[in-house]
């Protein structure tokens, strides 16, 4: 087995659940997470020499998954023929509660009302538990900018939580990703 094959197997085993978790927390349907994982690791396979060693690999993969997800949302994702089994199994095995409104409904709704850039940085800090320097790697911006934006985003979220009851208005993308879309 070549170094590349062995190294990729190691990379995949170490991070596939992290990437799958990243995707599951952000897509409308569990099976869509399979597409994100497939595309992300296909990029990693083809550009294996670019993947950093150690913990940097996870951040690199998050960065790829982030852009894959953005393409997916714009309907621009290249659906690969890969990962059909994973896609099928995800659709049947991911428990509904993972996509249900939880006791954190108010916080989630408040989060959904933030601008995309504010919400994304808070999600990376809270869901992936990334430090500012790690978020900077994922987003491709400086740690200075991350600290500035984190501070501002948290302040905005506190303001929304402190002032408002659960909203009755527009529920934007994050909220729609957390609950199944309703028929009109």
């Amino acid at each position: 087995m070549s170094d590349r094959h062995a190294g990729f197997r190691e990379l995949y085993a170490a991070h596939v659940d992290a990437v799958l978790g990243y995707a599951l927390r952000r897509v409308a349907r569990p099976e869509d997470a399979g597409d994100v994982v497939s595309e992300t690791f296909l990029v990693a396979w083809r550009r294996f020499s670019d993947v950093p060693q150690g913990e940097g690999a996870r951040l690199w993969l998050y960065g790829v998954a982030r852009r894959t997800l953005a393409n997916h949302r714009r309907g621009e994702s290249r659906r690969t023929a890969l990962g059909e089994r994973l896609r099928h199994d995800l659709s049947s095995t991911v428990p509904d509660h993972a996509f249900a409104v939880t006791e954190q409904e108010t916080v989630r709704a408040a989060l959904a009302r933030l601008a995309d850039r504010d919400r994304e940085i808070l999600e990376l800090a809270a869901w992936e538990e990334l430090e500012p320097r790690e978020i900077a790697e994922v987003l491709g911006i400086s740690a200075v900018a991350v600290r500035s934006r984190l501070s501002r985003s948290r302040a905005r979220l506190r303001q929304v939580l402190g002032n408002d009851p659960p909203p009755a208005g527009h529920l934007t993308s994050t909220y729609s990703r957390l609950i199944p879309e309703e028929a009109p």
């Binding site: 596939v16 690791f41 089994r85 989060l111 809270a126």
Partner: peptide, 24 residues
């Protein structure tokens, strides 16, 4: 307060072994 809908630990427990291997 911004808890995830599903954690990485929960993801690891999903019965997806065959799907993971196939994709790899």
């Amino acid at each position: 307060m911004i808890g995830p809908t599903i954690t990485d630990q929960e993801v690891a427990l999903l019965p997806l072994a065959d799907g993971r291997v196939d994709l790899l």
